[in-house]
Amino acid sequence: MATRAGKNTLMMQNKPCISGFAAVAGKKEGEGPLARRFDKLYEDTHLGQTTWEKAESTMQGEVVNLALGKANLTAGDLQLILAGDLLNQCISSTYGLRELNVPMLGLFGACSTMALSLGTGAVLVESGAVQNCAAVTSSHFCTAERQFRYPLDYGGQRAPTSQWTATAAGSTVLTPGGNTGVPSVQAVTFGKIVDMGITDMNNMGSAMAGAAADTITNFFTDTGKTPDDFDMVLTGDLSQVGSDLMNQILVRSQIELKEKHADCGLLIYDRETQDVAAGGSGCGCSAAVLCSYVLQEMQAGNLKNVLFVGTGALMSPTSVQQGESIPGIAHAVWITGC
C-alpha cells in the first residue's frame, strides 16, 4: 500500500516497476538532439492518415504497442490503460486505443498528463488493484495548432516566449514491484492548481512555473529529501522562460536545483537552430523525453534518482478568450534506476 508522507506525497512500498517504455516522434523532433533516442520517427507527420487527428491517434496506438513489446507483454496482459492528450474530449486517446480492448481511464492534465497517468498508474499498481497497466500520452503540432491557435497555413509570427507543441508520444508499462533491472516508482506527489495570473497564451511557461515550484517544494518538504539526493529534476515543459521563473521562485524557498534541473521542452529541440522560440511543449514532449533519453539513461545506470515533474497549463481557447487567467498544475513522480 502507498503511505502518505507529509501532506501531499504518496510513498510506494512495493515500488511499481516501469517494465517497458517507448517513445515515437515526428520530423522536427527527429532533427533535434534526441533523434537517435526515439523508438520510431515519422518523416511524414500525417502518418499516412487523412486527418491530423487520426495521425495523432495512430501515434498513440503505436507507442503503446512498442512499450508492451519491450515489456514482453501484449495488450491482453493489461488490466488498465491510463491515457490523455490535449484535444477536446481526449479524442486522440479514445480513437488511438479503441482497438486495444483494455479498460481505459481518460485523463486530462494538459502537458502534465504523462506525470499524471504515470503517477496514478503507479498508485493503482502499488495498491494491488491493478497488476499491469500502461500510461500513455501524445501531442501533435498540427492538431494542437488547429485547436488552440490558427489554421496551419495562416501566416503569423510566433512570439519569442511561445512554445512549440511537439509531435510525439510516449508510453510506459507498469508492473508490480520486485522486477530487477528496470526503473521503479518511489513516490508520487500530485499537485494543486496554482494560478499566477498570467493571461498570455503565448507565455505558458510562466503560467506553469508557479505550479512546478509549488509541487517541487511540497515534495522536498514531505520527503525530507534535497536536490542533492537527485541526479536530475526533470520538468516538462516549462521551456526557457518558465524554467528561469521556476528557479527564481524555488530560490525564495531555499531550494536550489542548479545544474540538477533539466526541462523536457529544452531537451527535445535545439533552440539555436530549430526556430521553436522558448522550447517545446505538449503532452507528447515530456512523455517522449521521459520514455526515451531519461529512462534509457536510468536503465543504463547513468541516472539513479530522477524527479519527473510534469507541468500543465489548464486553459481552453474559450477561457482564454473570456479573459480568464491560465492556471497551472504540476505532478511529481520520483523514479529510481535499477
Binding site: 503540432f141 495548432e145 497555413d153
Partner: peptide, 8 residues
Amino acid sequence: VGKSHDKS
C-alpha cells in the same frame, strides 16, 4: 485543392 501543411 489545398492540403494543410505541417510547419515543421
